[in-house]
Design a protein around this nucleic acid. Structure first.
Length: 588
DNA sequence: GCCGTTTTCGGCCCGACTGTTTTCAGTCG
């Protein structure tokens, strides 16, 4: 039997869905695989156990056929249906999906009729007019494809949360005070705080007569390099960063419905529309409308439309925070509960996980501490690299002891000056090959807290990786696990880690798992939030700061913590200095 | 491919926009 991780299985199912679409199969079939992928990704139980107990078909969305595919995957390491699809659909075509304006149907058609599989070939066929000659295509389509390929070659399809936030804020600033703008909001995946963002969506409530001048300001914004489309209700631009920004202007009466609609997620919207239908109503971007027995709808008089709160209310739900709109149990939760008490940026009282010039940080301990004070934080949990991380200037035992003296001196000086601030002695200890920490016990005992992170041998198979983590979590000196999967978004995949299992072990041992707030990481992944919640797992929003600016990544981590359903009392660095000091001491 | 107190077969959420079309398919949120 092959040991699998839930995310690996989800990836396979997603791959099948993508290839099915490209192969021109019934789209509903592909949707079924997509659904199954998402379900397994969000599953709290270990997929291996479910497979062992032959319990896959008990899961909603997984029938006989997909179950058998997964039993085969566990037994042989391969899914027959995927192997077949790979023979049928050339790998090169998957990249074509990134070309805007090209979907699976057209890709399949072009591939079949022109016999090409690579983007370079597609470019040629667009240039020589072959693509334009195909039925349903034309000169404009070919030109659009060429432009989109050009863009793809220059920029990546998606960007990190910090870049999207900056692009959006710059645009919002130039729009929010314009005449006629009654309401303005970011929508889409950025409002939901996804870890990576494709397009930036902005929604404005304004009366029609103001729309044209607002769109003019938008398309003439200094950061705009290309206008992709300009209509009466929607315009799209490309910025110099390579991001697409969509602006929609709706009537003030429709703002709530439109905001809900454009915030998504698609999956959340589907559930909300289904909910509307169950109540003899229909929901679209203009509002929630009554349906009579014959299924006719009176679109002139919405039941609700002006605010999200009232629409949710009419659907018998309390307000669902945007971060949670992913169809992962939010409907069931907000049917019963008024709110989820999610952690906020203002709740964060201290900075845990930061580096100094002692290892690979750019600033001294004192400079980092001062920067924390300036930002209103009460403590700094300093965690330079441990000795095995030689590439990052990891500290040998002698250096550790010297650093402790420096920290003591700094804390004493703060006390003398009447500054209410404390530097905690921490370390980001490498998790060694065998799962042990990087110093002997007598040294480990001298730290206030220890973050244990994997920095080497990232490609070990899942069971080896989990053996390592088991030993680390069992070590009484481990306070927290750092960036559990070692992923770098858009750059490097994740290690084979059974995060569900890790959460159980950590919660049982009173070990926290950090949410690394660096936009490249945002690891642990928010998709494990429900599991973490049900086991009462503690976390901390950690900037992993190597510079002063790095501290300011904390809001991205808070966004992910919210998306992972963390209340403030399960986030360590919402505690006061005394409280967290006590927690560090008492947890052992 | 999945699912079911309207269904074991026939649906599967909804609308705008675009480019190609004389009525619509494909794409995109």
């Amino acid at each position: 039997m092959h040991s699998l991780t839930n995310s690996f299985v989800a990836e396979k199912l997603e791959e099948i869905a993508t290839l099915m679409r490209l192969a021109g199969e019934n789209d509903f079939k592909a949707i079924a695989f997509d659904r199954a992928a998402r379900t397994i990704e969000g599953l709290q139980e270990d997929i291996n156990e479910i497979i062992e107990q032959k319990g896959l078909t008990d899961i909603k969305g997984i029938g006989k056929s997909i179950a058998n595919d997964l039993y085969a995957l566990a037994e042989t390491g391969e899914v027959p249906v995927l192997t077949d699809l790979k023979k049928k659909v050339p790998e090169g075509l998957i990249k074509w999906l990134g070309i805007s304006g090209l979907g699976p149907k057209k890709i399949y058609k072009i591939h079949k009729e022109l016999g090409i599989t690579e983007i370079d070939e597609l470019k040629e066929k667009c240039e020589d007019g072959s693509v334009a000659k195909l039925s349903g295509m034309g000169a404009k389509s070919a030109e659009k494809i060429l432009k989109s390929i050009e863009w793809m070659e220059q920029f990546s399809e998606r960007c990190l949360l910090d870049e999207a936030t900056e692009v959006a804020n710059a645009m919002m600033k130039s729009l929010e005070d314009l005449e006629g703008v009654e309401k303005i909001s970011i929508a889409g995946s950025l409002r939901r705080s996804n870890e990576t963002i494709g397009d930036v969506d902005i929604l404005i409530a304004a009366n029609e007569k103001f729309a044209a001048p607002i769109f003019d300001v938008f398309t003439n914004h200094p950061s705009v390099t290309e206008i992709l489309g300009k209509g009466e209700t929607k315009s799209s631009v490309r910025t110099k960063e390579g991001r697409q920004v969509d602006l929609r202007i709706v009537k003030p009466d429709h703002f709530g419905a439109a905001l809900m609609y454009f915030t998504g997620s698609k999956e959340h919207n589907v559930v909300m529309r289904q909910r509307a239908r169950d109540r003899n109503m229909t929901l679209n971007e203009y509002g929630l409308f009554e349906m009579d027995e014959k299924g006719n709808t009176n679109f002139d008089k919405p039941v609700a439309s002006e605010s999200e709160e009232i629409i949710y209310k009419k659907l018998d739900l309390n307000f669902v925070p945007p971060e949670l709109r992913e169809d992962r149990g939010e409907a069931a939760f907000f049917e019963k509960n008024e709110k989820a008490d999610l952690v906020t940026v203002d709740d964060i009282r201290g900075v845990l996980h930061a580096h100094s010039t002692w290892s690979d940080g750019k600033k001294s301990i004192k400079e980092m501490a001062d920067a924390c004070i300036e930002r209103g934080y009460s403590y700094l949990g300093l965690t330079d690299h441990s000795r095995t991380a030689a590439y990052a200037g990891g500290l040998d035992i002698e250096s550790v002891q010297k650093q402790w003296k420096e920290i003591d001196a700094i804390n004493n000086q703060f006390a003398k000056d009447g500054v209410d601030f404390r530097v905690f002695k921490g370390i980001e200890s490498d998790i060694l090959q065998d799962g042990s920490l990087d110093y002997p016990d007598d040294i480990l005992a001298g730290f206030d807290f220890i973050i244990a992170s994997v920095h080497a041998s990232l490609d070990k198979p899942a069971d080896k990786m989990m053996d390592r983590y088991k030993r680390t979590v069992d070590n009484k000196y481990t306070t927290m696990i750092g960036h559990p999967t070692s992923r770098l978004l858009l750059r490097r995949g994740q290690s084979q880690v059974n995060v569900n299992q890790l959460i159980e072990w950590a919660a049982e041992n009173n070990v926290a798992i950090e949410i690394n707030a660096n936009p490249w990481r945002l690891d642990m992944d928010w998709r494990h939030g429900q599991k973490a919640k049900s086991f009462g797992l503690m976390s901390a929003v950690c900037p992993d700061a190597h510079t002063i600016e790095g501290i300011d990544d904390i809001p991205y981590g808070v966004a992910i913590a919210r998306k992972a359903w963390f209340e403030s009392d399960r986030i360590l660095n919402t505690k006061s200095t005394d409280e967290i000091d006590r927690w560090f001491k008492e947890r052992r």
